[in-house]
Nucleic acid binder design. Sequence first.
DNA 1: CGCCAGGACGATG
DNA 2: CATCGTCATGGC
Length: 296
Amino acid sequence: MRERHKSVRAWRVADYDLDATLNSGQVFGWQEADGGWEGVVRGRWVRLRETDAGLEATILGAVPDWHWLEEYLQMGFELEQALASFPRDEVLVRALTAHRGLRLLRQDPWECLACFILSSTKQIIQIRQMVALLSERYGDAVAVPRGHGQRHAFPGAKVLASVSERALRGCRLGFRAPYLLHAAQEVSGGELDLAGLKQWPLEAARARLMDLPGVGRKIADCVLLFALGFDRVFPMDVWILRGLRAHYFEGRAVSTKQIVAFVETHFGGWAGYAQQYLFHYLRMQGRGRARMDSKV
DNA sequence: CGCCAGGACGATG
DNA sequence: CATCGTCATGGC
């Protein structure tokens, strides 16, 4: 599929760090290309690039409105307000200084759930690979500009629900295959209305997600934060746990439960944002070095 | 070439 | 509750 007409839209926006945003482990389908990023949003090929004035998007075809992309990128979000609410503790300030402009996207709930089901015990690079393979095999091909290779959207729940576990294991999903299949069946069958969870109270929405096999607190929280708009949710993975223990508890052997309690009061209403800054900061710091510290 | 990865789960203390 | 083995696969 090829289309020749492109549409370009630019937003004046301060503090939008595209690299940090798309490379901070909240989303797995974007690829760096020619000084920008290319991916698929709502079945459309999208190219994003930072400019001096802000952010620029290129898509194919004539576009009546850009609302869907503005929503995805959270262009209307006032980052300053969230950042100003952060506690001024040392690590968080360092993370903020290092990555100011890191944003949370508003992802498609199904794609987000599926990707984080795949995320368990996988490095981010490997999650990207699984997502790419799954998309290639079962996702719809999207129109791309001339000269670009084929691109596929992330497969919908309906398609994946009709695939065998065996075929999914063929995509190198391992033990995650039956989990993904089950989620796809519940979502496509209407048994689980993911978008509807936005209206639920936090605890109930989290519990409903955790009803899914293969979905525990961490994965549920990722979906709540990255796709459903629960801004105070603070996903806790090994990196964050390690980091919190080191920086907020002087490395003492505090229980996970104590840390959870601490997080719920310490970071405030935009805790989810704080979490993403900390996660990205710790992960960037940890490349190569903290490997050894962490073993202590 | 082992170690471990944006975990979850069931079985034991 | 806290810990532990298991699950499947591959990047580093």
